[in-house]
Amino acid sequence: MRVLVVENYQGTDLGNVGAALAEANAEIDVRKAYLGDRLPKDASEHDALVLFGGGQNALADDSHPYFPELLDLIRDFAHKDRSVLGICLGSQLLARAFGGINQVGGASEFGWHGVTLTEEAKTDAVLSAMPVAFPIFQWHDDTFTLPPSAVRLASSAVAENQAFRLGRAVYAFQFHFEADRAVVDYWTTAFADTVTARWPDWPERLPAEAARNAALADQSGLAIARAWVATIGR
C-alpha cells in the first residue's frame, strides 16, 4: 500500500492518520507542495491520497500556484476509484475540485467542538461505528457548499458541511480528526503567536478543555482514521 500525502503548510502532523497508516504497514510518500515539491502527474503510482490543512484558503491560487494541478490530481484519484482523504483545507480543496463553492471566512471554530453525524453516516463505511455526536478538534475560518452528488455525513452549529463523501471512498472532513492531544499541544506551541493573537486565553483554557474532551476526541479520531485506511485498495 503506497499512500501519497500532500502537505500544504508548515507544521503538518499526520497524527491519528499517520498512526493508522503505520498499523497498515503503508508506505507514505510525503510531498511538501507548499515548499515546491513536485506532485505526481496522476494516481498511477499510489493507492490513496491524503490532503492536509493549512492557513491559506482553497482559492489561493496566486500564492499557491500548484492548486489547479492538485485539483486535477484529486479528480484523477477519484476517477480511478482510489481512496482520497481531505482534512480542513484538504476538505475545502475536495469541495472545489468537484464543484462545491468555497466560502472564505464566516465559519470560525477553534478548539474541541461537537459534531453531529447525519442519517446517511449510519450506513457509511467510515463513520457507521461512530456515536451520533462527539467532540473533535477544530481550527478553521472557511467553509463550502456540498459538491453535486456529495453525501453529507456530519455537521456542526457553525459549519453545516463538516464531512462528506463522494463515490465509494473520497472523503472530506472539515474537522481535524488527525489532531490527537499531542498534535494539539504541538500546534499550541508551534503557532503560539497566531493562536494567542486570536484566542489569548487558549493556553490557560487548554488543560481544562483537554481534560473534558481530548480522550474521547483522540479515540474517535483514531477510529475514523483506521476506518478510512480500511477503504484503501478495496
Rank of each mutant, 00 (worst) to 15 (best):
A48I: 05
A48Y: 12
A48Q: 03
V50A: 14
G53E: 02
G53S: 12
G53M: 03
G54M: 05
G55P: 09
Q56R: 15
A58W: 01
A58M: 03
L59D: 15
A60C: 02
S63T: 09
S63G: 13
S63W: 08
F67Q: 07
F67S: 03
F67E: 01
P68F: 15
P68K: 14
P68E: 07
L70S: 07
L73K: 08
R75C: 13
R75A: 14
R75E: 07
D76M: 10
A78V: 05
A78M: 02
A78H: 15
H79D: 11
K80V: 06
V84R: 05
I87K: 05
I87W: 11
C88G: 04
C88F: 08
L89A: 07
L89V: 09
G90V: 11
S91P: 00
S91C: 13
Q92H: 09
L93Y: 01
L94N: 06
F98K: 00
G100W: 00
G105R: 11
G105M: 06
A107S: 12
E109D: 11
F110M: 15
G111I: 04
G111F: 11
W112H: 04
G114H: 07
V115R: 06
T116H: 08
T118I: 02
E120G: 03
A121H: 14
A121P: 01
A121V: 12
D124G: 02
V126N: 02
V126D: 06
L127R: 12
S128Q: 13
A129P: 07
A129L: 14
M130T: 05
F134H: 07
I136K: 02
I136S: 02
Q138V: 02
W139I: 09
H140F: 05
D141A: 08
D142W: 12
F144A: 05
T145R: 02
L146M: 08
